[in-house]
Design a protein around this nucleic acid. Structure first.
Length: 940
RNA sequence: GCUCAAGUGGCGGAAUUGGUAGACGCGCUGGAUUCAAAAUCCAGUUCUUUCGGGAGUGUGGGUUCGAUUCCCACCUUGAGUACCA
């Protein structure tokens, strides 16, 4: 009987679906284990072989955990809001919901054919109203909360209102906007409703504000910082400019410290933690206030080096700083204005790319040094960023290279405040070991002491205070797009109002066009039925808006990361329509035990999701404040592009070996036309694209050999390999084994279809091993006692595979299986006691063939119900072993020694052997000393 | 620039409480089977050699009886980040 992967795989996929084999219950005697993949965005292109890598790994782990007696939750869903469906809609008029639905069907078919053990009864789709109802609900919870520094957690905004009514906000330690005014209880109570709402917006965890945003004109929308790469949009690579807009934001900065601290409690990859730490960017220092000569205004600066304050010889403001126009003197006005205008014109990208050119202008104004009272020039310069700290710096040219360069360039003084340090060539930025000099009360002190004393003196004199600054900005939450979650928000007199929970979801309205409106409104501005009737609590036609009972609804939608920031909680109880998950379900599953996904989400999804989880935890809505205990980043599978060489200016193509004889252009061609030996079928190529139809090909020994290039799998490089083709030809089990066999999970590696024949022939051998043990194709395994060698093979395999899975080294267990099958085939093993446990070991990796053979061995239950075999060391114990013997690390031989020899006996045996060796080689025997160790060590 | 990760045959990679480097697979070579091919099976495959051996895990040092593994310096590659005061 032949191994027919197509028949077997279809049979078991149907069977698993019918039997609901992988359905998880929300209560069980067994311990729980939650294995999650980052859910996919269902793109129109479908899956390529790179996508399932992480899913295969998590599936192996989930199946392994089931064998180990856990109640495993392993769900899957779709992150189905997103830009590509919307752009397709703009081009074709096709509703994004329809496109998305079709794409999901393709994804589901592709996922099913790989044989994943997902519990599909819990599927979520972020674009489903039943799902985004809860996204809107979380948004409302955030709106109704603020962050209290006193108890270091979020609390209801109503608590804050109570405080304001009683004592105003003077002593209120709650996170808020920097421009929040101070008021008394009396003032608060006298504020109008609108004024009160405006104040509260400065405290809410999601709030409206005029923010300078990253506006991408080509996409017609704003982008978050993590959606911008090298100054252009991550998607499409369009330029991004700064623009002021009224936007919803999330006050993630309130959680900066807890997001940092939480990293110590979770088992995530160090590089990922590092990049989150970097992104949050904590720096400890002080705020210092500088008075301005002949002015009421003051400049506050943030510095990490208050110990160097006596080295200040000038100050620099960002060109956008609000004091620039106020303090500039008549004489300098023209120069300063010209400079401000010039920098405004430069895009963010130019400014970033060009860090070497030093530019700036003197304002003519002077600040007063807080300690020495000396006059200090105030400059503006674009090396100071408006968006970090206060947008102003105290420049210490002797201690900071940028200040140094600026001072050198404009001929400003560079006072030296370090003992025995040469600053004629460059600034001295080292902290350790440096002694401060020429610094009044700080002179003679080292960095640590000087820092403390400087802050102490600043605070004592009321000139400043110690402060921790974070790079992490609040996250803009509004997108000018159609295909996203609508906000549950309407506007009364310009102030946002939340729609009550019981009226959710607010469903995305129909529009005729998916583009922004002509007057620049977001696409929802095209909707005709998009107003809120407060009497009926329903969405009604815009034409009815009267600003008395019927009000306009929010036109922006939520960003892509909204729906993905809590979905892991929703899976625990995804069909619950009255709560986002029941308390029982949340308390049972608690958090994700193993999360697998790409590292590209380090400062996006993974940071936002941690933020929401902490908020939900503060509000007692979830039981733990980190959503994923362990996380693994799977590497990317890269494509191996095929390149043909066209002789420049002609339609002639030369084989790779001949290309150096000509001047050629490189063109990528469909990788599927190339065979394992890098040879392309010229006839197929001619039919592939019209440009090759009449082309001439210069062959090398009758073959056209292509060049190869490893790069990201992408349609535009024609290097995409479709898993459908692989499953068709080799089967899902081969695909799964091969993807694991390619290399370490976390590493990026190129796909080369040629290698798959190895795992495919392994499966055929496995099939054969079981069939030669079955008499007449039926039951033939014997219940006879296995031999020592058979037991050794089995237990060695159990040990290795168990270790491999626990360490996520899935690549090496595939080798282990191959060795085991080869050994058992050689031993002609037909013992049930060996063959059954072996199948269980293999089943997480190659579940279909394992199920089929399991059934053939006479089992009626699914193999996924079987217990993982128990390793027994006694089968591996040997009586003797070959030991390496070395003399001075030079000469080596091996000697079989009994395991229970004493040290003296070993010495005698080795010496005897050495004597024989020496005699044979005609030399004098060396002295032998036994050095204790795992392996016997002998030194001459 | 800074942070992190990684450098092992023709290729993907294995081996790390320091102990026979190159498991396993691909590719390649030879053989068996076949009219032939595919498939399958067997043998070989780090380099070098005067067939005794010698060299060998990016480079140069160090620790050790012994280093792919530990330490120092350097080189290369990849990833992230970037005027963060």
């Amino acid at each position: 009987m032949q191994y027919n992967h197509q028949e077997i795989e279809k049979k078991w996929q149907d069977e698993w679906r019918k039997r609901e084999t992988f359905k998880a219950e929300n209560n069980s005697e067994k311990p729980k284990y939650y294995v999650l993949d980052m859910f996919p965005y269902p793109s129109g292109a479908g899956l390529h072989v790179g996508h399932p890598l992480g899913y295969i790994a998590s599936d192996i782990y989930a199946r392994y955990k089931r064998h180990k007696g856990f109640n495993v939750l392993h769900p899957q869903g779709y992150d189905s809001f997103g830009l590509p469906a919307e752009q397709y809609a703009i081009q074709t008029g096709q509703h994004p919901a329809k496109t998305t639905d079709e794409n999901i069907k393709t994804y589901r078919r592709q996922l099913d054919q790989i044989g994943f053990s997902f519990d599909w009864s819990r599927e979520v789709r972020t674009s489903n109203p039943e799902y985004y109802k809860w996204t809107q609900w979380v948004f409302i919870q955030l709106f109704n909360s603020c962050y209290c520094n006193e108890i270091d957690k979020a609390r209801p905004i109503s608590d804050l209102v109570a405080v304001f009514e009683k004592e105003g906000n003077a002593n209120c330690n709650t996170v808020c906007d920097e421009d929040t005014p101070t008021f008394s209880a009396e003032e608060w109570n006298n504020f109008s409703e609108k004024e009160q709402q405006e104040i509260l917006l400065k405290y809410r965890l999601t709030f409206l504000s005029d923010t300078e945003v990253n506006w991408c004109p080509a996409l017609g929308t704003v982008l978050a910082n993590d959606e911008i790469v090298n100054g252009v949009s991550e998607r499409g690579g369009h330029p991004v400019i700064r623009k002021k807009m009224t936007q919803w934001s999330m006050r993630i900065s309130a959680y900066a410290q807890r997001l940092l601290d939480g990293l110590d409690t979770i088992d995530w990859p160090q590089p990922l933690k590092d990049s989150q730490t970097n992104w949050i960017g904590r720096s400890q220092g002080a705020m210092v206030e500088f008075k301005i000569e002949n002015s009421e205004s003051k400049i506050s600066v943030f510095t990490t080096r208050p110990d160097t304050i006596f080295g200040v010889s000038f100050m620099t403001l960002a060109p956008e700083h609000e004091l620039v126009s106020e303090i500039t003197t008549e004489a300098q006005k023209a120069e300063v204005e010209a400079y401000v205008e010039a920098t405004a014109k430069r895009s963010e990208r130019d400014r970033m790319a060009d860090v070497k050119t030093i530019s700036g202008a003197f304002t003519g104004a002077y600040a007063i040094h807080p300690f020495s009272g000396e006059k200090v020039q105030i400059w503006i310069g674009d090396y100071v960023l408006a968006s970090y700290g206060t947008g102003a710096v105290m420049a210490v040219p002797c201690g900071d290279q940028r200040d140094y360069d600026f001072a050198k360039h404009f001929g400003i003084d560079i006072p030296n405040i370090f003992e025995n340090v040469d600053i004629s060539e460059a600034a001295h930025a080292d902290k350790e070991g440096t002694v401060i000099a020429n610094s009044d009360f700080l002179s003679g002190l080292k960095y640590k002491k000087a820092l403390k004393l400087a802050i102490y003196e600043l605070e004592k004199k009321g000139l400043g205070y110690g402060k921790i600054n974070y790079r992490l900005r609040d996250a803009v939450f509004s997108r000018q797009r159609y295909w996203g979650e609508p906000f549950p928000v309407y506007y009364v007199d310009g102030m946002p109002q939340m729609i009550a929970d019981q009226h959710l979801p607010i469903v995305l309205p129909e529009v005729e066009k998916y583009l922004p409106t002509e007057d620049g409104q977001p696409p929802l501005g095209n909707a005709e039925v998009w107003a809120w009737d407060t009497t009926t609590n329903s969405v009604v036609e815009n034409s009815k808006i009267d600003h008395e009972t019927i009000f306009p609804l929010e036109l922006n939608t939520m960003p892509g990361w909204a729906g993905s920031s809590y979905y892991f909680n929703r899976y625990m109880d995804s069909n619950n329509s009255s709560e986002f998950a029941s308390k029982e379900a949340l308390d049972y599953w608690k958090q994700v035990d193993l999360y697998i996904g790409g590292s590209e989400h380090a400062t996006g999804h993974l940071l936002y999701a941690r933020f929401w989880q902490k908020f939900l935890f503060d509000m007692n809505l979830v039981p733990v404040d980190e959503f994923a205990k362990k996380l693994i980043n799977q590497g990317m599978i890269l494509g191996t592009s095929a390149i043909v060489y066209r002789i420049t200016g002609t339609n002639k193509y030369v084989s790779k070996g001949l290309k150096d004889q000509y001047e050629t252009d490189e063109l990528r061609v469909d990788v599927n036309l190339v065979n394992n030996a890098d040879e392309i079928d010229v006839e197929e190529l001619k039919n592939w694209q019209p440009q090759f139809k009449d082309a001439e090909f210069l062959l090398d020994e009758g073959k056209y050999i292509v060049g190869r290039e490893v790069e990201k799998m992408s349609k535009r490089w024609f290097n995409v390999v479709n898993p459908d083709d692989i499953c068709e030809e080799y089967g899902a089990d081969s695909l799964r084994l091969f993807e694991m066999f390619l290399g370490p999970l976390e590493q990026s590696k190129p796909w080369k279809t040629s290698g798959i024949s190895g795992v495919y022939s392994f499966l055929k051998k496995l099939w054969k091993l079981y069939h030669s043990s079955l008499e007449g194709g039926q039951v033939g395994v014997t219940d006879a006692e296995p031999t020592k060698d058979e037991l050794k093979t089995l237990h060695k395999t159990i040990k290795k595979v168990e270790e491999d899975i626990e360490n996520f080294s899935f690549n090496t267990s595939v080798s282990t299986f191959m060795i085991a099958v080869n050994e058992l085939t050689a031993q002609k093993c037909n013992k049930r006691a060996i063959l059954e446990p072996l199948l269980i070991l293999i089943s997480p990796y190659a579940p279909h063939i394992a199920e089929e053979l399991w059934e053939k061995l006479g089992n009626t239950e699914s193999i996924s119900e079987a217990d993982f075999p128990v390793f027994d060391e006694k089968h591996l114990v040997e009586s003797s072993k070959n030991y390496p013997i070395s003399f001075n690390g030079k000469m080596r031989f091996t000697l079989e020694l009994s395991l229970d020899l004493s040290k003296e006996e070993i010495e005698t045996t080795v010496l005897a052997h050495e004597k024989t060796q020496a005699q044979l080689q005609g030399r004098t025997p060396k002295k032998v000393i036994v050095v204790p160790g795992k392996i016997v060590n002998i030194v001459g």
